[in-house]
């Protein structure tokens, strides 16, 4: 029993960067722009957070700067996809390469340095609940912030005018345009805000999970987040579910490794990726059967007014 709680605590920790990334992807894609470059953005966020924390010794500043740096880098993606109407998938790959390269280049001299890990902050009362308490309410502040983001994004997307407009951008930008909403403004907003969240997800690695910097710190988790957006059906609550499911898979894998079971660690490392493929396949099959697509209808399509006449 205690063993499960320990794994679950780790699952939340491992799942949190995925959650931020998935939420960022949800916002971007609800607005109609795919962000395939999450891996690169997470790395930019991670490196920025690490550098800022190293120099200013402030976790808060580290998070803010990570968000800003990732937001800035995503802006390139936004310009290329929205204003210049290029292929979003190719641009996302460019973003992944660019972000990975950027973090590798500027992080090269930082390998070997360490920062302190973010402390857990038990919430009085709630953290005393058996099992649930230690799992969900004896975590660090970034985890609590991710809970807040889930609820906030859900509320904005489905209960407000802003959310209606965002969702409409992903469904039918031409309709929005004819009604006088600025497609450019909303899509830029979604991509950049989404990118900032992804950057925060990246920041979680050096600030909580590792405390140090190595090249390619996120090790493919960004790509798992890309898949999780589909798994979550572009919905923040399901994003939470998916992120923790995969967090659990990663935590379990680490747990098995430390228990000294005679499976080579290389096979355990494959596990989250294989699981992602299996789950993605199941979700796709189920979706095919249902026949209704929940994918934003205009996802991946560039918009240009006056194409038709």
């Amino acid at each position: 029993m205690e063993w499960i709680v320990l794994v679950m605590i780790a699952a939340i920790k491992m799942g949190t960067p995925l959650l931020f990334g998935t939420l960022g992807g949800v916002i971007s894609e609800r607005g109609g722009v795919i962000n395939l470059g999450m891996e690169g953005l997470m790395l930019v966020g991670a490196l920025t957070a690490f550098v800022v924390d190293l120099n200013l010794n402030s976790k808060f500043a580290a998070m803010v700067f990570a968000a800003m740096a990732a937001g800035l880098v995503t802006t390139i993606h936004a310009i290329v996809c929205i204003s210049l109407r290029a292929n979003q998938i190719a641009s996302g790959l460019a973003l992944a390469l660019f972000g990975g390269g950027l973090s590798g280049l500027f992080g090269d001299s930082l390998v070997g340095k360490t920062v302190e890990s973010l402390n857990n902050l038990p919430i009085p009362g709630l953290s005393a609940i058996p099992a649930i308490g230690p799992i969900f309410f004896n975590q660090d502040i970034m985890v609590y912030f991710s809970y807040f983001c889930v609820v906030l994004i859900w509320f904005i997307l489905f209960k407000t005018t802003l959310g209606l407009n965002i969702r409409s951008m992903g469904e039918a930008p031409d309709v929005c345009d004819a009604l006088g909403l600025s497609v450019f403004r909303y899509r830029y907003g979604c991509v950049i805000v989404g990118g900032m969240l992804i950057g925060i997800g990246g920041a979680y690695f050096p600030l909580v999970l590792t405390s140090f910097w190595v090249d390619n710190l996120t090790a493919g988790r960004g790509w798992i987040a890309v898949a999780l957006v589909i798994f979550a059906f572009w919905h923040p609550f399901k994003a939470l579910l998916g992120a923790y499911l995969f967090g659990a898979a990663i935590a379990l894998q680490l747990r098995v490794q430390t228990m000294g079971i005679a499976i080579p660690s290389y096979f355990l490392e494959m596990f989250p990726y294989i699981l992602t493929i299996v789950v993605l396949t199941m979700v796709t099959i189920r979706n095919n059967k249902r026949g209704v697509s929940v994918m934003p209808a205009a996802l991946g399509l560039a918009f240009f007014r006056g194409e038709k006449h």
């Binding site: 005018t161 209606l164 407009n165 469904e171 309709v175 929005c176 004819a178 009604l179 929940v294």
Partner: peptide, 16 residues
Amino acid sequence: FMLIRNHTVTENIILG
């Protein structure tokens, strides 16, 4: 029709 198929009648009417 400039309507969003995935949205409700109300959402379509009040959009914008």
